[in-house]
Amino acid sequence: MTNSTAMRVLILSNNNFSSLPLIQAPFLESLHLSNNRFVGKFPLLQQNWASLITIDIGENKISGEIPSWMGSSFPVLQVLRLHSNQFNGYIPPQLSMLNNLQLLDLSNNNLSGQIPHSLAHMPSMILKTESNESYIYLDRGYKENIIENIKLTWKGEVVVYQTVALLTGIDLSCNSLSGEIPEDLVKLQGLNFLNLSRNQLSGVIPQNIGNLTSLEVLDLSMNHLSGTIPQSISHLTSLDILNLSHNKLIGQIPPGSQLQTFDLSVFSDNDGCWVYFGVLFWKVSLRFAIFHYIDKVQDEMMKWCGRYPH
C-alpha cells in the first residue's frame, strides 16, 4: 500500500498503530497519522514530496528534532501539525521556506531555544483577505468526496475543522521556548490566531502587535514577559480571546472599546497592571466586572486565611 503510485490521501488516525513502514507513494497529498502510538524519530517520509499538502502526526510519541530539510522538501505544504509529541531541539528556521504554509502547530512538545525570526517571512501568513479568513482550497479532481479533518484548539476548545476552510495561525504553546518574541511577527497580518503561551519567553510584547488586525485569538500567558502592554493592542478589533495573564507586565491596561469587553482575569497575575481609571465611570459592565473580580480575590484570600490561620 505504501508503494502505491495512485494513492493521494492516507488516513490512519485514531488507531493503535506503533510502527510505520517507509512511505513511498510519490504523489501523496495528505498524510494523517494523528492519535496513534507511533514512537521514534520523525516518520519515514520521502524528501522532495512535491505534492504533499497536509502532514498531521499529532498526538503520538514521536521524538528527536524536527528535520530542517522539511523547509525545502514540501513546496506546496499548507498544514504542518506536530501537536503533542516529544520533539526536542530548536524550531528549524528553514520552516519559513514553506511558502504555502497556513497552519503551523508545534504545541505541547519539548522544543527549546528562540522563536526563529524567519517565521515572520512566510508569504501565506502575511497575506490578509477581506473576510479576515484564509482558506485552503484543495482542487484535486477527486471523483469521490474525501473529507479531511484537522483538530485545533480554537478559542479555548478543541474543534475539528475540514481543511477546505481552515484558519491561518501559529501555535507554539506548551514548550520551553525562550528569548524575546520576534518584532517581525507583526508582519503576519493574515494570522487568525497566535498562541505562544506556557513557554519561557521574556522581553516585551512587540510594540506594533496591533498590526495583526486579523487576529481573533492572542494568547501570551504563562511566560516571563515584562514592560507595559502596547497601546496598539487596542487596534485588534477582531479579538475574541485575549490572555496576557501570568507574566511580569506593569502599567496601565490600554483604553479601548475592544479591551473593555474582556474579563480582568486575562490580565491577572502580573507585576502591576491597572485599569484606566476613567473607564470605571462610563463603562458600567466593566465596572461590575472589576468589582466582581475584586470580590472573588477577597473571597479566596479569606478562604486561604481561614485554612491557614496565623
Rank of each mutant, 00 (worst) to 15 (best):
K248W: 00
D271E: 05
N247C: 08
W304Q: 14
G306L: 09
W282E: 07
F267N: 07
Q260R: 14
F262M: 00
W282R: 05
Y276A: 02
W304G: 10
I253L: 02
P254F: 07
G251P: 02
V266G: 09
I290S: 10
D295N: 12
I253E: 01
M301P: 14
D295K: 11
G272L: 02
F281R: 13
L244K: 00
M301H: 15
I253H: 01
L286G: 10
L244P: 01
V266D: 03
L244N: 00
F291S: 07
I294V: 03
C273W: 12
Q298R: 14
V284T: 10
F288G: 10
H246E: 07
I290R: 12
S245H: 01
L286P: 09
V284H: 09
P254H: 08
G272D: 01
N270Q: 07
F291W: 06
M302D: 08
F262N: 01
N270I: 04
G306I: 04
V279M: 14
Y293G: 08
G256R: 06
W304S: 14
M301W: 15
Q260Y: 10
N270F: 06
H292T: 12
F262A: 02
N270D: 07
S268M: 09
F281D: 04
I290N: 08
Q258S: 13
C305Q: 15
Q252A: 02
P254Y: 03
L249M: 04
H292C: 11
G278S: 14
L264F: 13
F267L: 11
C305D: 15
D271T: 03
T261V: 04
L244Y: 00
S285W: 06
V275A: 13
G251C: 01
E300F: 13
E300A: 11
L244C: 00
Q260F: 11
C273E: 09
G251Y: 00
P255R: 14
Q260V: 05
K248Q: 09
D263E: 13
V297H: 13
H246T: 06
I294P: 03
I290A: 09
W274P: 05
Y293M: 11
M301C: 15
S265G: 11
Y276L: 02
G278Q: 14
G256I: 01
F291D: 07
F288A: 11
F267T: 00
L280P: 06
W274V: 07
M302N: 12
P254V: 06
C305L: 15
G278E: 14
Q260N: 10
G272R: 03
F288E: 13
S257Y: 11
A289V: 00
Q258Y: 04
K283M: 08
S268C: 12
N270H: 07
N270S: 08
D295I: 08
N247W: 01
N270R: 07
Q298Y: 14
L264N: 01
R287E: 07
F262D: 02
G256L: 03
D263A: 12
V279A: 14
R287I: 05
E300L: 11
Q258K: 15
S245G: 00
P255E: 10
T261A: 00
I253W: 01
D271K: 06
D263M: 11
K248V: 01
F291K: 08
T261W: 00
D269P: 03
F262W: 00
I290H: 12
K248R: 05
G272Q: 00
G251W: 04
A289C: 00
I250K: 06
K248P: 02
S257R: 15
L280H: 09
